[in-house]
Design a protein around this nucleic acid. Structure first.
Lengths: 225, 225
DNA sequence: ACCTGAACACCGTTCAAGT
DNA sequence: ACCTGAACACCGTTCAAGT
């Protein structure tokens, strides 16, 4: 009986790098990056922490692998579309992946070695632009501004003190929470903005994303011509 | 003698929140965020780690304070300039501050409570736009796209596998380092880009920043009219 | 009011020992 | 080939005790 249970556990297990990374992502999505430890991750996999080191070089390697999986979840620019729609779809997909795994952006700053999915993604984006006739310089410009905007917008969105997916209720709290305890008149423009947003029932900060994205795509189109 | 030394140390000390934060920033600029611990920070200040807790609630509070100091180093939009030049100067200054303290962007994702310098900064930017006649909606649009771009561009710049401040030498390495060990033809567009950059002697990725910034400022100007 | 020593419940990682 | 127990050198933080 105990023997059978052990067998079952062992069969279910079959520790692999892939399974370790997936489990680490699931735990980190749920509990945050500060809570991820080799010991807890081992426990979640029914194994001692030290066993992980047979499949992962160290914790840095683990984090590198997690970030690369997030990249693999971003749609590549599809070949059927014109560059503008391909870039637009990719940008929306990237934001969604980064919101799904809010720890990913914070990890990027310290990631020195990009994984295969990351490289494949960058290569596909450059390819999409080049095939559409962008010069190398223009492709560099376009890629730099688009990716900067995607990561940065999502970063500020994650930093906001209210949930961006909620409607007016969430935004309304900002007026209360943030403005509480300030001298009246201090941060007057911030207060004005917060109150105005709170008054708009359907306002979601996330909606700003596509406004900026289209402004940038317009700009790229114009500079190209 | 030992007594005198102790006195001198004590006089030099005068532990304050301000001094703790400044020292923490200095250590983290030098050794990276993973290396910052309460114990090491205490040691650098000639004090036991536990003493820090008299001036700082906990490590989260310490990190919050550090990020707020980085914000305080960003030039506020000056009132004498038109909105466009004020935003431009602020953006350049923000990028510089974030490059000076490369750990700051990575911390932002997890910062829930903005400090006074952060709030003052946001308020001043909104004020600059509003005084220039931006509607509340347009100010929200403009701020969202500008800050997204500033943080995101700097984040990708910090993530690049070569130093962005170096000239052609640094960039040239990318072709060697990254492309080594790939099947020829894999990541072809990435290779093309890397080789092209390596051939341009004065190329710095940081130069892309102002191209994108001006494209965005142009776009905002156009949408407003 | 501020600083500290000891203690607690954690970390990542190495290594020799098991199967 | 893969897993583990013990060990090492660290963490953040609490608390009672010192001045």
């Amino acid at each position: 009986m105990a023997m059978q249970a052990k067998r079952a556990a062992k069969r279910r297990a079959a520790l692999t790098r892939e399974r370790i990374l997936r489990t680490a992502i699931r735990l980190t999505d749920r509990d945050g990056i500060d809570s991820l430890s080799m010991r807890k991750l081992g426990h979640a996999l029914g194994v001692e922490a030290m066993s992980l080191y047979n499949h992962v070089r160290n914790k840095v390697d683990l984090l590198d692998g997690m970030v690369d999986i997030v990249f693999s979840q971003i749609d590549l620019p599809s070949n059927g579309l014109d560059w503008r729609n391909a870039m637009r779809k990719r940008a929306v997909s990237a934001r969604q992946a980064l919101l799904r795994h809010p720890w990913a952006i914070g990890l990027m700053e310290s990631r020195a070695t990009p994984g295969p999915a990351t490289l494949r993604h960058h290569d596909a984006v450059l390819g999409s632009l080049r095939k559409a006739g962008f010069s190398i310089d223009m492709a560099a410009h376009a890629y730099s501004i688009l990716d900067g905007y995607i990561y940065g917008f999502t970063l500020t969105e994650l930093t906001l003190p209210f949930s961006t997916s909620e409607g007016g209720a969430g935004v309304a709290e900002i007026a209360g929470n943030i403005m509480d305890g300030f001298r009246p008149g201090e941060y007057g423009y911030l207060a004005e903005m917060a109150l105005d947003r709170a008054r708009k029932p359907g306002y979601k900060y996330g909606d700003e994303f596509e406004f900026g994205l289209d402004l940038i795509l317009d700009g790229i189109e114009r500079v190209r011509a």
